[in-house]
Amino acid sequence: MIPVAFEYERAESAEQAKALLAEHGDEAKLLAGGHSLIPLMKYRLAAPAVIVDIGRLSDLSYIRDEGEQLHIGALTRHRDVETDALVIGQVPLLAAATSEVGDPQVRHRGTIGGSIAHGDPASDIPSALLALRATMVIDGPGGVREVASDDFFTGFLETAIGDDELLTEIRVPKVPDAGWSFQKFNRRAQDWAIVGASIVVDNGSCGVGLVNMDSRPIRAGAVEAAVNNGASAADAAAAAADGCSPSGDLNASVEYRQHLARVLTRRGLEEAGR
């Protein structure tokens, strides 16, 4: 499969990337590791006229300890996140979710920023960032702004990042002592989740993010509220599919996805120590 022809620009800095986006407008698309974008281009579901390759902006590949948070550069590869001692120690849920993305070859190329900028409801990492109440840092002509994970995923393959903006950093609260669980149900080892759930329970405060249960990555707010009010794992998980609008496909009907959301959320809450 061969993508539609495009003009290729390689950005040597974040500033240059922004300048190229400003120049080409919505004709341009950023290329990081390429493991969301290139498949779309090969299927010709995406046909950007201009590709701005930011894959070599090594100054956006880092994991830093910043007090209450970890700051993760948008171009940090999945492999570097899943094996990083700080992430494993301080935000083990994120390390676990990242280690479930694709397969080793995919994780050698794919980046955390590229994955979440793609805004795919079937991706693993957004569910963890929603459960953890992460914050995204977006750089654009209007300056740098922070967007809460709740406001970041706006629709199917749509995020709060503007056409002329660049996602630069993901800020994740440290939760070294929290109970957590990442649950993923799929058909084969490397597949996308049919449904998945990220659970974190910290000092009685609960976060639940769901994979593939709506047109965008979402939180299970009813489950969080039930846990915070003292409900058992089984009682809280019964509300996991409330308010969700999953789609049906070859792998699973709507009803089966709703069932999976309840089962995986219950298992996750139990594993997280609820």
Partner: peptide
């Protein structure tokens, strides 16, 4: 498969396994 699933196209890029059907030569 030509869709980054099967791994038949695996090569090493700077010493690490990658699926060469999902990397542009310019990268």
């Amino acid at each position: 498969c030509d869709s980054s699933s099967c791994g038949a196209c695996t090569v090493h890029l700077n010493g690490e396994a990658v699926k060469s059907c999902t990397v542009f030569a310019v990268q």
